[in-house]
Write a protein that binds this DNA or RNA. Structure first.
Length: 445
RNA sequence: GUGGGCGUAGCUCAGCUGGUAGAGCAUCGCGUUGUGGUCGCGAGGGUCGCGGGUUCAAGUCCCGUCGCUCACCCCA
C-alpha cells in the first residue's frame, strides 16, 4: 500500500497540536459551565428536509448513502449537519416537554460542509456553540448574557491574538431602511453586507440597481453602515441622520443596551464595538447580530458569530425564540497553529519517564509509576531497558521534563533533564511544579 | 463549479539544451561498553504522484489522470 495523502479540508493534528486544541475545548467547556450552560451532543445526521429547511444550499450538504442503496432517490434521506444550530432547533422541538425554559446549552462538535477548502474553511470542522432558548418569549438581557459568556471564553484563551467583537441589530438597520421608504429590506441588507469585500461606490450602485433605492436613499444607507463606535455614541450619530421608525428606535435601544452591558469586559485584547455594517447574510436573525475578527487574521473573516432569532424553532403552536453565538474552533485554531507554530510544551501528557535498569526490574519501575499516578502525576515507564543515555533521549524527544531513576539500593533519584539537576526523591511525596504537571501551550519560534 | 501554482528521501528543497538520483535538517550506529544535548566519523532511507507517448536514453519533453495548494464563486 502506498503512503496515504492528506484529504483536503479534513484537517488532522499531531499530538502536540491536538493538546492545544484540547486545551481550547476544555477552556470553552469550563467557561460555559461557569455560566450554567448544560452540555449536549446531537447526532451527526439530520433528515434532509430538516437540513434544507432554510433555502437551497443543498450542494454543500454531505448526503448519507448505503453502498447498496436501492431507493429511487439514491440516498438515505439523511445528511451530515453543517452547523449546530439546525440540529439544536430540532432537538429543542423533539425534547420540548422534557426541557426547562429558558434552556441554556453549549455544544462542541464537528460539522461538515462540502465547500472548497481555504484557510480557516474546512469540510470537517469543530464548532463551539452556546444558545439560550425560551418558550414564546426570551427577554433581551439574554442577548447581553451570551455576549458576555463568549467574550469571557475568548478572553481566557490567552494565546489568541487580540480580537474585535462587532455587534449590530437588525431591527435597527431594517427600521432605518423602512424609515427611508425602502421596500426590499432583505435585499438592501444583503448588499450592505458586502461592504467589507466591495468598494463603497460599487455597493452604492448595487443598491440603486438591485434594491430599487434612489441615489439619495443609497447615500443614507451607506452613511448608516459606516457608523462604528466603541460605546453607545452611535445612537446620537444615527439620530443625526434624521430617519424615524418604531423598529429603528427599538433596535437602537437594544444595541445601546448591549454595548453598555459588555463595556466592563473590554481590554486591550478585547474590543466590543457597534458596527452598523454587520448584517450576517440572508439568514434568520431578527435582532442582535455578532461577528468577530482576529487582529492580523482579517482575511479569515469572522471566527465567531451569531445573533438573535425570534423563531429558532416552532411546532406551529409554540414558538421558541433563541439567541446564540458560535465559535469556529477549527477555523481559528488550525490557521493559528500553522501560521505561528503555536504548540504544546510536550507531545505526550507524561511529566515523568521512569527509567528501566533492566527487564527484570520492570515491576520496580512500574511500582514507581503507580505511586506517581496515585497522586495524579502523568507518567510512563521507559519502553526498553536501553542505556540510560538513550532513555533520557526518549524523554527529551517527547518533551518529558523529568526522568526517574530507581536506585540499586532501593532509593530513588529524579532528574530534571532541562538543567541536568538530579536529586534524591520519594515516589510517594515528590511532586513536579504545577507548570510541569501538564503540557503547556507555548508560542511558536 | 472556474482559473493559476505545485507533486523528487521523514521534513525543506536542488537537479541546466534529455545521459546511471542529490544537499541540508531529521533518524540510526560508532567514538563515549548503563546518565542525553556539543563535536567528529559512518550508515540507512527513493516506484522522482500515477498512466501512456516521443527517444538509443525521460525526474527532465508531450498527452492524460489523480492529489495538494492559492484565488474566484459560495459561505445557514
Amino acid at each position: 500500500m502506498s503512503k496515504p495523502t492528506p484529504l483536503s479540508g479534513f484537517p488532522e493534528l499531531l499530538p502536540a497540536q491536538r493538546a492545544v486544541e484540547q486545551q481550547v475545548i476544555d477552556t470553552l467547556r469550563s467557561t460555559f459551565e461557569l455560566y450554567g450552560f448544560a452540555g449536549i451532543e446531537t447526532r451527526a445526521v439530520e433528515p434532509l428536509d430538516q437540513l434544507l429547511r432554510k433555502g437551497d444550499t443543498s450542494k454543500e450538504v454531505y448526503l448519507l448513502r448505503r453502498l447498496h442503496e436501492t431507493s429511487e432517490e439514491g440516498h438515505a434521506g439523511m445528511g451530515l449537519h453543517f452547523d449546530l444550530t439546525v440540529p439544536f432547533a430540532r432537538y429543542v422541538l423533539e425534547n420540548a416537554g422534557k426541557l426547562e425554559f429558558p434552556f441554556r446549552r453549549y455544544q462542541i462538535q464537528k460539522a461538515w460542509r462540502g465547500e472548497r477548502p481555504q484557510e480557516g474553511r474546512f469540510r470537517e470542522f469543530a464548532q463551539a456553540d452556546i444558545d439560550i432558548v425560551g418558550r414564546d418569549v426570551l427577554p433581551f438581557h439574554h442577548d447581553v448574557e451570551v455576549t458576555r459568556v463568549m467574550v469571557d471564553a475568548l478572553t481566557r484563551l490567552s494565546f489568541l491574538p487580540a480580537f474585535r467583537l462587532q455587534v449590530n441589530n437588525r431591527k435597527l438597520i431594517q427600521g432605518f431602511y423602512a424609515g427611508l421608504g425602502l421596500e426590499d429590506l432583505d435585499e438592501v441588507m444583503r448588499i450592505v453586507d458586502k461592504l467589507d469585500k466591495l468598494p463603497v461606490e460599487k455597493v452604492h450602485q448595487m443598491l440603486v440597481d438591485e434594491a430599487g433605492a434612489t441615489s439619495e436613499q443609497a447615500d443614507r444607507v451607506l452613511s448608516l453602515a459606516t457608523i462604528r463606535t466603541g460605546d453607545d455614541s452611535f445612537v446620537a450619530q444615527v439620530r443625526g441622520l434624521r430617519v424615524s421608525h418604531p423598529l429603528l428606535d427599538e433596535g437602537l435601544d437594544e444595541l445601546a443596551a448591549l454595548v453598555r452591558g459588555v463595556a466592563d469586559l473590554t481590554s486591550d485584547r478585547v474590543r466590543v464595538e457597534a458596527d452598523l455594517s454587520i448584517a450576517r447574510g440572508l439568514d434568520y436573525y431578527t435582532g442582535t447580530v455578532f461577528e468577530t475578527r482576529l487582529d492580523g487574521y482579517e482575511s479569515m473573516g469572522s471566527i465567531c458569530s451569531g445573533g438573535r432569532y425570534d423563531a429558532l424553532a416552532s411546532d406551529g403552536k409554540i414558538t421558541y425564540p433563541g439567541v446564540g453565538i458560535s465559535l469556529g474552533v477549527s477555523r481559528v485554531l488550525v490557521p493559528l497553529l500553522a501560521r505561528t507554530g503555536l504548540t504544546a510544551s510536550r507531545s505526550v501528557p507524561s511529566a515523568v519517564l521512569v527509567a528501566l535498569a533492566d527487564e527484570d526490574s520492570r515491576p520496580a519501575s512500574e511500582a514507581v509509576a503507580a505511586a506517581l499516578r496515585a497522586r495524579s502525576i502523568p507518567c510512563e515507564v521507559a519502553p526498553t531497558a536501553a542505556k540510560f543515555g538513550k532513555q533520557i533521549r526518549v524523554a527529551e524527544r517527547r518533551g518529558i521534563p523529568f526522568v526517574w531513576f530507581p536506585q540499586a539500593d532501593g532509593g530513588h533519584q529524579v532528574k530534571d533533564i532541562r538543567d541536568g539537576n538530579q536529586v534524591d526523591a520519594d515516589p510517594s511525596v515528590w511532586t513536579p511544579s504545577p507548570e510541569d504537571l501538564r503540557p503547556q501551550v507555548v508560542p511558536g519560534a
